[in-house]
């Protein structure tokens, strides 16, 4: 006889991509690289969702150019998700995008009980609208304050200042350069100074794909089901972030020589 048809109660985990679709994303195949990176990351994300019976992973996406608009408005279970390509063209209404996300994180429509949402902001430029107003609207929402907020800078023209404001203060801030706490607020691990609490610098398609994969698997895992804890963890953040993907030396980079 089968085990009774019951399962662990789960909570929704809202994962929202906030994607720059301005005209500059058209250059050097950046928008294509972003579409590819997200599409490629979905099977791994679905696998993590399945391994976390406590979570129901729901994905959404906002695109912003002249205006901000939902690209994927319906919270969609990652197992069912088919990624439609984002198109680039226009200016950079990042502030408006944050206002859209703010409205989505209001309760309702937000469920009464959930896991911390994950917000991933990806941009290659500067906001052309009122970013501060958008960010303020977002951060008035308790669910946005609780959210894991990550930012990926595509290329070196991205405004890392505003991306850092979106993430919030690095809780390890004030440390001398190169002494950025690693995962879970531990002792410095990344001599390169990389930290998930800073904008992640994607300077080519390969590193973009790695960061997107990391956000959609390791971070989703951390936000939905706690991972092993190590001794010596400092004061815990809302959600301890996993290590960033290691910098792998890859002489035969097969994704292409694009550098932004």
């Amino acid at each position: 006889m089968p085990f009774p048809n019951v399962r662990l109660a789960n909570r929704p985990l809202h994962f929202i991509y906030i994607c720059d679709c301005s005209g500059s994303m058209e250059a050097q195949g950046k928008i294509q690289a972003l579409n590819q990176a997200i599409r490629q990351s979905l099977p791994g994300m679905a696998e993590v969702a399945r391994q976390n019976p406590e979570a129901r992973v729901l994905v959404r996406a906002v695109g912003f150019a002249d205006r901000a608009a939902w690209h994927l408005e319906q919270p969609t279970e990652v197992q069912q998700l088919q990624w439609l390509d984002l198109q680039a063209g226009g200016i950079t209404a990042m502030g408006e995008a944050l206002e859209l996300v703010a409205a989505a994180l209001q309760s309702p429509p937000m469920e009464e009980r959930a896991l911390p949402p994950v917000l991933v902001l990806i941009s290659d430029g500067q906001p052309t609208d009122d970013f501060d107003a958008g960010l303020a609207a977002l951060m008035r929402q308790p669910w946005a304050q609780k959210a894991v907020r990550l930012a990926i800078a595509m290329g070196h023209d991205a405004d890392t200042e505003v991306l850092q404001q979106f993430i919030g203060n690095d809780p390890g801030g004030g440390l001398p350069a190169g002494e950025i706490p690693g995962a879970s607020g531990q002792r410095p691990l990344h001599r390169s100074g990389r930290s998930p609490r800073r904008p992640l610098q994607a300077s080519n398609a390969t590193s973009l794909a790695q960061y997107i994969q990391w956000a959609s698997t390791a971070v989703v895992g951390a936000a939905s089901m706690p991972a092993s804890r190590m001794a010596g963890s400092g004061p815990q953040a809302n959600i301890p972030l996993p290590d960033l993907p290691p910098t792998l030396m890859d002489p035969t980079d097969d994704v292409g020589p694009l550098v932004w």
Partner: peptide, 26 residues
Amino acid sequence: RLLTRHDPLRGRRELAIRCLDEPARR
């Protein structure tokens, strides 16, 4: 968890938690 497909400490007290994050799990 194998026998019940549930967690031994998650009952009504969990329902009072809106955002199940680290401090809440603690």
